[in-house]
Design a binder for these strands. Structure first.
Length: 423
RNA sequence: AGAGAGUUGGGUGAGUGGCUGAAACCAACAGUUUGCUAAACUGUCGUACGGGUUAUACUGUACCGGGGGUUCGAAUCCCCCACUCUCUGCCA
């Protein structure tokens, strides 16, 4: 959530940023934010003054009663009644202004960093770099949804029986590949100084608001109505919310957490052509890294996470490219996002396998995640996260890129985790 | 799931209608004393949103799990909800 103070102090910059996201009514919305904030403040000032008077009167009544001056006490009590109704009126005005302000702020996305390119869609994303050789596959190459049948390692039909479309069943070497990747990713993160956590995969409403899934993406999460809990779409939600309403010491920064969780996405309305096989699922596995940093160092951390994820892809011997997302393609809460895409040689297309973002104070403001600095004043920290990595498309590209006449070669780095080197 | 007990400041914990933003102790911070450490003593020590100031100072309001109510006045009385603990039940 944007800070009103920041909007007031850097109006033009905020406006420009929101326009980069192609937000049509940015100017009107920001003007309304400021107007509502003025109303909020003026009604509070008036209310506080009247309340102060009422408090004084109450004390007087107490003293008069004690002295037995009931007649005088009754007289003062009348004044109190008048104040009470005025206070109530101002109170309602104040609450309404506050409520409207909050609702409006929830509709405003984060302001993109100045380095974020303008643009409307994925077409306008900036390719930062491309790495690795795109393999040339022999005649008769198969897309992964054929390969998994051929080698009987993932069964979609069984998943349909158990749950529905988009819930694959991993079998045999397929299941072991999943487990190997998860362990490899966790071990790598540990070596890079991340603390492993295992959070709940159902979260409450407050957590959904904390990281910005609510109210923006209400329909994209599975919801257990009986208990009012959401299935997490990403470990970002529970892990970042570990630090909701937390005041950390500046010396504890940066905080680095990693967690493996399954992720659940309803993907309402997004099924169609390019989503066969593992390309889009309702349930998938992901290892997520989260950092909480001092505002001065969040972009260093973003670059660090960027190259960390690239390191994973290099070890997995996958050709990839890094994109800097344009304003139009970036997530609601992000200030800057890098996407990593691997090349899937049988589908002959790039697949997004990671998204690394800096949210600056946008989430921290909702979370009330602050740190106490050297000046002993508390201020909002910056939050970041990134996939490191999401499994299905990694599996898809490993299968496709490494297929050959004598099976599918596994990346060397996984051999010890797998216990086999070929499927 | 049933019955009971509870939720107070960084921690322990007092407080059943006005003198309580909240005792006491601990922790923390600053200072005095001490050769150092320790101890002792003195002081400071919550958050949010306003007003005010160049910035301080100063000042108002709210906050004792959350929300609502009674009252001139609520941490304290009433109602609803959440959570924690104990016992019983069920269960990986």
């Amino acid at each position: 959530m944007l800070l009103v103070q920041h909007i007031r102090d850097h109006y033009d910059q905020v406006l420009l940023g929101l326009k980069k996201r192609n937000l049509v009514h940015a100017d009107a919305a920001l003007q309304q934010v400021l107007a509502l904030d003025e109303l909020r403040k003026s009604s509070q000032t008036q209310r506080d003054q009247l309340q102060a008077e009422a408090n004084t009167i109450s004390k007087e009544i107490g003293i008069l009663m004690k002295e037995g001056k009931t007649v005088e006490a009754t007289a003062v009590r009348d004044r109190s009644a008048v104040l009470k109704s005025q206070i109530k009126e101002l109170e309602e005005q104040h609450e309404q202004a506050e409520e409207e302000l909050k609702t409006l702020l929830y509709t405003l996305p984060n302001v993109p960093h100045e380095a974020v390119p303008a643009g409307k869609s994925a077409e306008d994303n900036e390719v930062v770099l491309t790495h690795g050789e795109i393999p040339t596959l022999p005649e008769g190459k198969l897309p992964h949804w054929e390969l998994i049948k051929k080698y009987d390692i993932i069964d979609f039909d069984l998943g349909v029986k158990i749950a529905g479309a988009g819930f694959p069943v991993y079998k045999g070497k397929g299941a072991r590949l999943q487990r190997a990747l998860i362990n490899f990713f966790l071990d790598q993160a540990l070596a890079a100084g991340y603390l492993e956590v295992q959070p709940p995969i159902l979260v409450n409403e407050d957590s959904g608001y904390g990281t910005g899934q609510l109210p923006d993406k209400e329909g994209q999460m599975y919801y257990a109505t009986e208990d009012k809990l959401y299935l997490i779409p990403t470990a970002e939600v529970p892990i970042t919310n570990l630090y909701r309403d937390v005041l950390v010491n500046v010396s504890d920064l940066p905080i680095k957490n990693v967690g493996y969780t399954p992720c659940f996405r309803r993907e309402a309305g997004s099924w169609g052509a390019h989503v066969r096989g593992l390309n889009r699922l309702h349930q998938f596995d992901k290892v997520e890294i989260v950092q909480i940093t001092h505002p001065d160092h969040s972009y260093e951390a973003l670059e660090q996470m960027n190259s960390y994820v690239q390191g994973l892809l290099q070890q997995l011997e996958l050709p990839y490219r890094v994109l800097r997302l344009c304003g139009g393609d970036m997530g609601f809460t992000s200030a800057m996002t890098y996407d990593m895409e691997v090349y899937s040689a049988a589908q002959e297309r790039w697949l997004e396998v990671s998204s690394v973002s800096n949210f600056e104070t946008y989430q921290a403001n909702r979370l009330k995640l602050r740190f106490k600095g050297e000046d002993k004043k508390s201020q909002l920290a910056h939050t970041l996260n990134g996939s490191a990595l999401a499994l299905p498309r990694i599996v898809a590209s490993i299968l496709e890129n490494n297929q050959g006449p004598d099976g599918i070669r596994m990346p060397k780095v996984l051999h010890s985790y797998l216990g086999f080197d070929r499927i």
